[in-house]
Amino acid sequence: MLLTPQSASRSLAAVFTPIKSRGLVDEVCGRIEQAVETGLLTSGQRLPNETELAAALGVSAVTAREALSQLRTAGIIRTARGRSGGSFIADNVLPSRERALDQLRDLTRLQISDLGLHYQAIAAACAGVAARRSDAADVATLRSFIPTAEADPLHWRLALSEFLLEVAAIARSARLARELIRLQADLGTLTLLPCADAGYRTTTTGLLLDVAAAIEAREPAAAETAVKALVAATTDWLLTEQSKRY
C-alpha cells in the first residue's frame, strides 16, 4: 500500500512551494514526479493546463510548457487531443526498481559512502537534539511512522524518509530539517532497492525501534548511535549491491 498523502505530507511539502531557483523546468518535473510517488496525483488524473500550472508554481508559461513536454518524453504524462483532451498522469509511473538500478549504476563507491557519511552526520545531529527536546506526543508520532515488515517497498521507502523527517521535526531545527530534505532528494529512488529485501526490512525495523526508544528515554548518545546504524544499514546494502557489478 502506498502511504496516503496525509501521512507523507512533509516529504511532499517541498513539492508545491513556488520555484525561484535555476533549473526551473527540472524543478517543475521533479515536483510532479514526487506528487505522483506520494499519491497526491494518481494515474489517469488530468493535470492542469500550462497556464494553470504556471500560475500555481509561479513560473512562466514557457517553463510550464517545457516541463510538460519533458514529462511526456519521460513517460510520466500522456497527452490526449480533442474535446476531452489534455495532459494526464500516465499508468505505471511509480518509481521502479529499474530506475533505481540505473541510478545506482551511475554512482561510484566513493559517492555512495560520502553521501552516507553526510547523511549520518545530519541524522545524528537531529537525533541527539531530538532526544533532548522530545515530549510524549512527539514519540507517539515518531512510532506511527514505523512500517510493518509486510509493507511493500514503495511504502517502506516513504516511511523511512518520513521517520527521519519526524526526528528532525522533534529536534525543532529548521536548518537541520532542510539539510535532511536535501540529502533525501540526493538519494532519490536509490533507497527503493534495499526496501525490497526482507532481511534489510527486519534489521531496519529493529533500528527504528532503537531510535524511537532512545529518543523517548532522552538519551542523546544512544539516539545518535542508533540513527547512524540506521543510515549505515542503507549505505552498506547499496555498497554491497554496487560491488556485484564488478
Partner: peptide, 20 residues
C-alpha cells in the same frame, strides 16, 4: 509566494491537511 497551490488540482487534497 503562492503556497502549495499545485495541491489545489488534486481531487483528494483534503487528505493533505486533515491531520495537521
Amino acid at each position: 509566494e503562492h503556497v502549495d497551490a499545485l495541491a489545489n488540482f488534486s481531487p483528494n487534497s483534503i487528505s493533505r491537511y486533515v491531520k495537521s
